[in-house]
């Protein structure tokens, strides 16, 4: 009897060990993938990065010089997108989660948002071209690009915000309403502050996506080459992801500009990381303050 139990115990232990091992390998593959990407970018790109690269426009048919207009353009586009998408996304999530009564209308809106999340980014680009650039006569501009990117990041932000709102204990809401607060006061003073770290996570995800996308800005905001920095939201800009794409596929000398391509990619990654870091630091400070 005892012997039999022991074999069963052994089998169970073996199974548990194997499964944990598999999970560990899966997690490692993830980490490795990121490390590999970063390693390649650093190994091939770091030589390209110097002061000129970061502070000058491209020169000599983009085979020399820097990528300053791309950095500025990408910053404008992704910050613009987040400034548009965050308020709309948070407001939508508040409506869906706190105000709307579950029913057919809300179901339709949810379905719409979920489908929006599944739309390929190039479709957003074409939509942006047709609607913002042509129909609303914004032209190829930061505004049109930001709006297109905003439309694309909305589902991410709405999803994250709804998740964050759901995570706020209903006892907070009850306590607040029980003290004679209105629903809006409850949301504004209790629910939103409690949900803010989660909302920021959504903003981080959104901004990372916006900064890295090529297709949505290809027809709406980004241009092949412009040496000047934008002065208004109606200017067209260069952008890091599009610049990489251009150098790698349509440049004047694709092989010679390889280091520049990797350098640009490295800058893009660092930029996204930097934007994320600001939000992450702010978020951890919020969490500490409660």
């Amino acid at each position: 009897m005892i012997g039999k139990t022991d074999t069963i115990q052994g089998r169970r232990k073996w199974l548990q060990g194997t499964m944990f091992g598999l999970f560990r390998v899966a997690a490692l593959i993830n980490g490795m993938a990121l490390l590999l990407v970063v390693y390649f970018l650093v190994a091939r790109g770091w030589r390209a990065i110097n002061w000129t690269f970061l502070t000058q426009p491209p020169m000599d048919s983009m085979t020399k010089g820097g990528i300053l207009p791309c950095i500025v353009g990408t910053l404008c586009l992704s910050l613009g997108a987040i400034f548009i998408a965050l308020p709309i996304g948070v407001a939508s999530a508040i409506y869906l989660q706190e105000y709307a009564r579950p029913g057919r209308v809300v179901g339709m809106i949810r379905l719409g948002i979920n489908n929006l999340a599944g739309v390929p980014s190039v479709v957003f680009g074409l939509f942006g071209l047709a609607f913002f650039v042509v129909y609303l006569k914004m032209g190829v501009s930061i505004l049109a690009g930001s709006l297109t990117l905003a439309a694309m990041t909305l589902p991410v932000i709405i999803g994250a915000t709804e998740e964050a709102l759901r995570g706020v204990p209903s006892t907070y809401r009850e306590a607040s309403l029980g003290l004679g607060a209105t629903k809006w006061q409850t949301i504004y003073r209790v629910v939103l502050p409690a949900a803010l770290p989660g909302i920021l996570t959504g903003a981080i995800l959104g901004i990372s996506r916006a900064a890295g996308e090529t297709a949505p800005i290809m027809f709406t905001a980004a241009v092949f080459y412009t040496p000047s920095l934008p002065t208004s939201i109606f200017d067209e800009v260069m952008a890091l992801p599009y610049h990489i794409y251009v150098l790698a596929t349509a440049g004047t000398d694709i092989e010679a500009t390889r280091p520049l391509q990797y350098g640009t990619a490295l800058v893009l990654i660092v930029l996204v990381l930097g934007l994320n870091l600001v939000a992450i630091i702010y978020r951890s400070r919020l969490r500490k303050n409660r």
Binding site: P169, T171, Y172, E174, A175, S176, G178, L179, G180, A181, T182, Q185, R189, V190, P193, A194, R290
Partner: peptide, 24 residues
């Protein structure tokens, strides 16, 4: 007024918790 089964103070300071009902 109402007091709930589980203590449910807001994630705010002690002062702000008590002042909440007055502030709103």
């Amino acid at each position: 007024g109402m007091v709930f089964q589980k203590p449910n103070p807001f994630p705010k300071t002690i002062f702000e918790n008590v002042a909440y009902g007055l502030r709103v």
